[in-house]
Every structure is written in C-alpha cells, then in structure tokens.
Nucleic acid binder design. Structure first.
Lengths: 202, 202
DNA sequence: TGTACATCAGTGAACGCGCGTTCACTGATGTAC
DNA sequence: TGTACATCAGTGAACGCGCGTTCACTGATGTAC
C-alpha cells in the first residue's frame, strides 16, 4: 500500500514533474493498463483535476512518460559505454556488445517500461525518420557501428543494413524473451549469431 | 455500430465458439484493452453472465483467443508454403522467405492480433520448451531450415542458432514496424541481411 | 409411447467499483505603481 | 513600503459511464423406466 503524502502548501511547486515521476512509479509496478490519473493525483496529494493543468488527458501523460523512458535508456547505455571507452578494435567490439546487453537488461529489469515504449502511446506524432533522429539510443548505435568499421573490425560492405539488423535482432530477442517465448540465455546466443552475421572478427 | 442479433432459441447451441469468434471480432477492431465481456454477450444476444459457463473470467477468454491466433497464423503460413512446394534448393529458399513474409504480413494486417499474441495474456501456463513444441509456426520454421541445409543452400555450421536468429530478426522488424519505429520497406531489407547472415546462397 | 426428473444452459437484477473528465470556484503569488 | 489586481495553480463536487462478477433463479433437454 502506498500512502498519500500530505502537502503543506497550496501550490505544489513542481506538479508537472511530480505527475510524470509518480506515473513512472505506477507503470513500473503495474504496467500501463492499470495506470489511473486519480491514483496518481491521490498519491501526490492533489485533487484529481489538477493534472489537467499540465496534460490534456491520460494518453498524453503516458506519451510524455514513454518518451522520457527512451531518454533514460539512452542515459543508461551511455553510462555503461564509457566504461569500455577506447580507440582499439577490441574496445569497439566490446561497446557493440554492451549496447545490445544494456537494451536487453533494461527491458528485463523493467518489462512494463519496455511495453510502454513500444506501445501505441509512443508513436502518435512525427515520422519514423524524425523519431529515429531524436532517438539517442539509435544514434549511439550508429556511432558504434561506425567505430567497428573504422577500427577494421567489421566489413565495410556489411555496414549498410547493420543498424537495421542489429536493432531487429536485439529488439526481437528481447521482446520474445519478455513475452515468454524465448529463454533468457537465448539472448547471448543471438548476439553471437549477430556478430557472426555482421562479419565481426573475434 | 454493431447490432445485436436476436436468438430464436433459449439455448444458443454453440456459445463457447460464439464467444471466441465475437471476441476475435472486437479485438481485431479495437485491440484487447477495450474488450468487454458485456459487449460480447450483447453482440451475441445473450445475458452478460452466460459467458461464465465457459470461461472463469475475462483473462482466460483472451488467453484462449490468443492461442487460437497462433493456430491461425500457422494455418495461413502453411497455405502459403504449399504454393512453393518442391524439393529444389530454389524452392527451399523461397519457402524461407515466404515464412518470414507471412509472419510480417499477418502482423501488419492485424496488429491487434499481433499485440494480443505477444501480450501477458498468452504466456500464463507452461514452459518455453513446451510452448515452442506446440507452436506450429515454430515447427514449420525448423523444417524449413532443415530443408535449406539438405538442399545445400545453407551451411551446416550455421544451422545451430538459425531458428533463433531467424525468428528474432523477423519478429524484431515486425514489432518495430508495427510500433512505428521502422518503415514497412525495412522488412525486406532485413530479410536480405538475414539470408546473408545465414550464408544462404543466392 | 408417455412421464418424472436430473442436468444443463441460460436469465436478469444487483453489487460495488473506479474511472476520465468538466466546471465553477478559490487560495496564493507576484508585479506595477 | 504598501496596496490593487491580474494571473496562475489548485479545489471538490458532480456527471455519466461501463465494467467484471455473483447469485438465486428458470426454461429447455434428454434419458430412464
């Protein structure tokens, strides 16, 4: 049971942020289907209608939360990537694996987040092109693959569709594992296959 | 607007089947979140409580529907596969592509079905092993890959993780396209990469 | 061939619930003079 | 330094809704004798 916090002031001060972080907390625990604006408001200690000063409706709160989760994922990946910084071919290869693994781990640790990110709530606006440019995780993948080519770890000829193949394999296994159709250990096997497929030399 | 049918008899005769097919119709149109037992009962022309003679609750109706959709997908794939029957290497390669394409087309045509199949409602019972054995689409994939090896189109050494890689790529691109993160035309590109990855000779 | 009766497959009213959203409102804040 | 006032950020009651599920019930069916 969560207990509602009592505010001491009439004005909350940072209600917009509070709404998102509280929504995040609920989605984390129970998934997006069960998310209720009233529960969020109650948890914050604010009236049910207060949220409407910041979001036109429930869907748009979910959308904002979803997009912020893409940022969180990118942050997490970048934090892990700097641990294997370096210009060597070995470092570049390791970064590629870290990129895949962090994506997977993120999803396994917080499957409800993963579901929200790839749900209907997070596509509404903008084109695929634009979404991709704004998706930092995707940009990181591009740089990572460029590094592989530059350090001579990956064949230039295979570069063209490397983003597509990498993202598909990583997202595909992750999604199938989260939904119970593959086992956890299948992920590393898939990553091995992917490296082989991209001609990444061991 | 759907109009409720009027039954002429007190006993419906085939209510269990009617519940599933009507649920299918609603999920097809609006997705699983909005599925309501009351609406289904009303559409069939039966009282809201009648469904409880066949399903303990809403979730189990969704689960049964979901599993039947896996069967439908397998049926669809098999119908398309027989069109490219034959023992030649060329036919085996074509079957592999058909298998991927039908998966994708199925999802594009009925995204709500795709979402239900890989939602929480369809994993409840049984292990990954068992699920896979009962999943005809997966069995078909196995046979298809075996054919590729036998007809000399695919390197034996790459056979081991071929199911995993194939399913991941196909499922991954499909999922990303359905959720608006990739474009429709990315699918064929990914399939090309996959064939390259598996060493399938053109 | 007819009837008693167990069983099956529905009914329909009710419970209790929480939800998203609207609306007229009021308390707090900060700025101009 | 003090005050008037516009603006902002909340309140809280209400609307209207549909939902899943339970329960005591009744109408229809089919079988045994």
């Amino acid at each position: 049971m969560t207990t509602a916090r009592v505010r001491d002031q009439y004005h909350h001060g940072d209600l917009e942020v509070a709404l998102i972080t509280t929504a995040r907390k609920f989605v984390k625990k129970n998934g997006l289907e069960s998310l209720s604006l009233r529960q969020i408001a109650h948890e914050i200690g604010v009236s049910p209608s207060a949220a409407y000063h910041y979001f036109p409706d429930r869907n748009s709160l979910l959308a904002v939360l979803g997009f912020s989760l893409f940022e969180e994922l990118a942050d997490y990946q970048e934090r892990e990537l700097v641990k294997v910084a370096g210009a060597s071919a070995r470092a570049a290869r390791e970064r590629f694996r870290v990129l895949g693994r962090t994506y997977f781990e993120w999803a396994i640790r917080e499957p409800h987040f993963f579901n929200l990110m790839f749900s209907d709530f997070c596509l509404i606006e903008s084109s695929v092109e634009q979404t991709r440019e704004e998706n930092r995780a995707y940009q990181t993948l591009i740089h990572c693959l460029d590094d592989l080519v530059e350090t001579g770890s990956m064949d230039k000829k295979l570069r063209a569709s490397a983003e597509l193949l990498s993202w598909s394999v990583v997202h595909g296994t992750t999604s199938l594992i989260v939904s119970g159709h593959l086992d956890t250990e299948d992920f590393e096997r898939a990553l091995d296959s992917l490296e082989l497929a991209l001609g990444i030399r061991k």
